[in-house]
């Protein structure tokens, strides 16, 4: 883990292992998710890996009914729209992610500020395996849990 470069490739690799990882500047402590090679606050280039706990709240979102081909292949269309958004993690940083577990046919019912918990959506296998970062409502996760 220590050897991985602080970039999107490593970030996506950790996601396939169900780990949400960021980089922290060892000089000023600023946290970046996805990780960055250089601290854009103090310009130090000494980073360390940190794992996020995976809890956060919904900052903003959208529900998409006309998606790009790779989302259409997943079965999303005008009748089955998907939700994406910005989530603020407990650690104080924000990430973009797919948002699961809401009724996407009623976007007005989705509430900004909803508490969320991390989820990982895996697609394909082997070399093509890809994992999307997702979040779902904390409540429903606890009820099921």
């Amino acid at each position: 883990m220590v050897e991985s470069p602080f970039n999107d490739i490593s970030y996506n690799k950790f996601l396939t292992e169900e780990k949400l990882m960021g980089s922290r500047c060892t000089k000023c402590g600023t946290l970046f998710v996805p990780p960055r090679p250089i601290c854009t606050k103090c310009y130090a280039a000494d980073m360390e890996w940190v794992e996020m706990k995976g809890k956060g709240e919904l900052i903003t979102f959208t529900v998409i009914s006309v998606g790009p081909p790779f989302m259409i292949q997943e079965g999303y269309d005008r009748k089955h729209p998907y939700c994406t958004g910005v989530v603020e993690l407990e650690e104080g940083v924000r990430v973009v992610a797919r948002i699961e577990g809401f009724d996407n046919t009623k976007p007005e019912s989705i509430k900004v500020g909803s508490p969320l918990i991390v989820d990982f959506i895996h697609r394909d296998t082997g070399e093509k395996r890809k994992t999307y970062l997702a979040f779902k409502p904390l409540e429903s996760a606890e009820k099921r849990g």
């Binding site: 979102f61 959208t62 006309v66 994406t84 973009v96 900004v112």
Partner: peptide, 24 residues
């Protein structure tokens, strides 16, 4: 941005999220 593209954001959706924030 790369992470937005990967997670299925489209152009209308990037402004859609800004509209949700503006509304809030």
């Amino acid at each position: 941005f790369p992470d937005e593209l990967k997670h299925g954001f489209t152009f209308p959706s990037l402004y859609g999220t800004r509209a949700v924030s503006y509304s809030e």
